[in-house]
């Protein structure tokens, strides 16, 4: 079952930041990348990606520039800012603690 990423608050932002930590990417590419990396388990409503990008840009975690794609189309490329990179590290730590905690609760009998 493919889970909707936006169901879990904060997880969409985290995944976007992680995706951008590999390379700058445009919105459609981010969506594709998330699907590929999660082997289709994580799916997102494609449109809701953009408000999230907007929010992250407002928070100063990512920046954006207009560039051209391989087939020569203009596209908006998002990239991680230094503060975004720091935030990603912190978020991954706290997310892993959260996931471990959640797992421990669910495993307990």
């Amino acid at each position: 079952m493919a889970r909707r990423l936006e169901d879990l608050r904060g997880s969409l932002d985290l995944v976007i930041l992680k995706t951008l930590s590999l390379a700058p990417m445009h919105g459609w590419g981010i969506g594709q990348r998330i699907r590929q990396m999660s082997s289709g388990v994580l799916d997102i409503n494609q449109g809701s990606l953009y408000p999230a990008l907007q929010r992250l840009e407002k928070q100063g975690l990512i920046g954006s520039d207009w560039g051209t794609t391989g087939n020569n189309r203009r596209a908006r490329y998002y990239r991680l800012t230094p503060s975004g990179r720091r935030a990603l590290g912190e978020e991954i730590d706290s997310w892993q603690r959260f996931a471990e905690g959640l797992g421990a609760v669910l495993r307990s009998t």
Binding site: E57, K58, Q59, G60, L61, G63, T81, S83
Partner: peptide, 8 residues
Amino acid sequence: RWVDAARA
């Protein structure tokens, strides 16, 4: 961070 945010 706040500079980036303010610029955006």
